[in-house]
Write a protein that binds this DNA or RNA. Sequence first.
DNA 1: CGATCAGTTGAGAATGGTCAAATTCGGTGG
DNA 2: CCACCGAATTTGACCATTCTCAACTGATCG
Lengths: 243, 243
Amino acid sequence: MDRAQSPLARKLANFVALSDVELEVLDGLHQRRRNFIAGRDLVHQGQTHPAAYILADGWVCSYKLLRDGSRQVVDFQIPGDFLGLRSVLFRTADHNIEPVTAVEASEVLESDLLQAFSTTPRLATALLWAASRDEAMVVEHLVGIGRRDALERTAHFLIELSVRLTLVGLGTRDGYSCPLTQYHLADALGLSAVHVNRVLRKLREDDLLTFQMGQVTIHDFDALVELAEFDRSYLDQDGPLLR
Amino acid sequence: MDRAQSPLARKLANFVALSDVELEVLDGLHQRRRNFIAGRDLVHQGQTHPAAYILADGWVCSYKLLRDGSRQVVDFQIPGDFLGLRSVLFRTADHNIEPVTAVEASEVLESDLLQAFSTTPRLATALLWAASRDEAMVVEHLVGIGRRDALERTAHFLIELSVRLTLVGLGTRDGYSCPLTQYHLADALGLSAVHVNRVLRKLREDDLLTFQMGQVTIHDFDALVELAEFDRSYLDQDGPLLR
DNA sequence: CGATCAGTTGAGAATGGTCAAATTCGGTGG
DNA sequence: CCACCGAATTTGACCATTCTCAACTGATCG
């Protein structure tokens, strides 16, 4: 098995050693290529029978909207991520999905997915793993919002992004390009945009990290890890569980 | 299929219509019955090759511990819940599991689980659904901590518990018995115990709900739903997805 | 009957929010 | 190249939700 694979296949292979047939079925999910422009939601809360997407290029964010107009970003997805799985399984979207940038993604319909699960059930196990990893990220996020102050929380978030992007070849230990605005950060971190700005200034003044003009520059990775009490183990997997 | 089923089987049947063979395999996971006393952790952060558990009786909570000694409770589990799935899939526990009460649970080893996935792969799909429902709860929790104030957040949490307990026959619209202390609430809601106490007083004074002596009494369910902007759809499923 | 733990209350401090007003940046049209 | 526009960012002043500390009550248990 040495031919070119999709980023998703590479990710899943970490968990379940996939056979040729399974890889082909996974490839088959990449029909229906779609392009989206920034800002117009792919999926909105309450939508029934939404599709899932495999993200090929660009960033999207998943968020929930509250009655008072505020929103909480649950997660950002980057290339290689599978998104909307939960919405498909429940046949109703419980969150919105907004492209942060222009986005290229493969649409996966409920029928495609269930078909794939029937013919190659181990794919379900593999996706169960991917879903668990996503859940681990949400849990880390929850801990941050619940128990870390604004500075630690922001640092943790930006370091997590750095590690995730590095895993798919889109970043290094020194930084990454980042299309998020300070409003995105605020909505993700449970802070106001004004306070995010103050926190970013503090991080800059302390020579830890610069967030400017679509670029995150990390000046002191280790100090940030220390500050944020960041433990990357929830993002890694050291070998396939199912052979 | 009309014989007695475990609560877990009943829950999973909501999502995937399980065959006799699949139900038997699921039953088989209920060997190794264990009892635990309140307060001594079943699983602790960093533990490798932890087991998963199917909760038969009692409450447990999943939490993460921070360096400064504070903790964030991610979720409480009640009878019928499957817990520690993520830890098994990653072969390392990323959180602690503490029995809130005396607990009766079936221990599920990694090998049992993978064996079950191999012989009856649709069980993996069913557990994928259960995991997605759990993730939906964590997401709702995240939204609460990120964007709701202490009063709304507390109300949301206690109403969610009411609905979950009612689904497994342990509560009604009027209330439920609840073994949690105000410290548990504080750790779950990202508040201090002192503030939780003030919030509970406010809820009591407003004739919405009483939290006292292990008993939650709901005085005005609808007003609480309104206050907390509670939408139960993430807890329900209206019929099996896989036949 | 002391000890311990859950709950309760008050006072003062702090983290982060709100409002309002610059300032800068990235286009876009002339 | 320049003027201009809207969006994103930056800063200050003031405010409020929630925290911390500390004291006190009440129940339970050996």
